[in-house]
Amino acid sequence: MESTKYTQPVALSKKQVDRKWWEIGDFFRRNSLWMLMYCTGCCAIELPPAMTSAYDMERLGMGPMATPRQADVLLVTGYLSLKTLRRLIYTYEQMSEPKYVVGFGSCTINGGIYHDSHAVINQLDQYIPVDSYVAGCMPNTEAVMNGFVDLIELIKNKKANGWKNYHTNNAWYKKNQIDALGEVRIKDEFHQ
């Protein structure tokens, strides 16, 4: 039988306190995922039904946001050509931390039907860290919703650590980016 006598509460170390705060923060973060939709591919067409009355993602606390600074989740909906990839990386780096990435469709996993194109990258994970994938070409709307729920579960289990990996393995990501693009930031005909 447990003693009912008052015991002095053990003072938590700073690490433990931080962890507690982090868990509380995680609760808020997973219940309020604001999306930045990077709609380059065909999978973007699955988002309207997911947002409107058929599937209603607002019940998960999700909603669209206008700029990367405000958003938590980056949705990459489909194939990425080299031209868009550099912009995606720029956008991803502008997001405030913690930040998550969801890849849509087979294009982000292995290139999908564009796997042999010279202008399209095959694996998104090589360039920016992806937390959750939604497979399919194109994925069903149920699958999209499932992907979001998966992401929420990942955050709950502290496994959505892509943004930390981007810091720790930054050299590797940068190398892949440079290999594919030459340089991430460009000076093209519009920017002398």
Binding site: G25, F28, R29, G61, D72, Q94, S96, E97, P98
Partner: peptide, 13 residues
């Protein structure tokens, strides 16, 4: 409330 507290918990620029 969740939205606001989430924002407060994030690292801003």
């Amino acid at each position: 409330f969740i939205d606001i507290f989430k924002l407060l918990s994030k690292r801003a620029t």
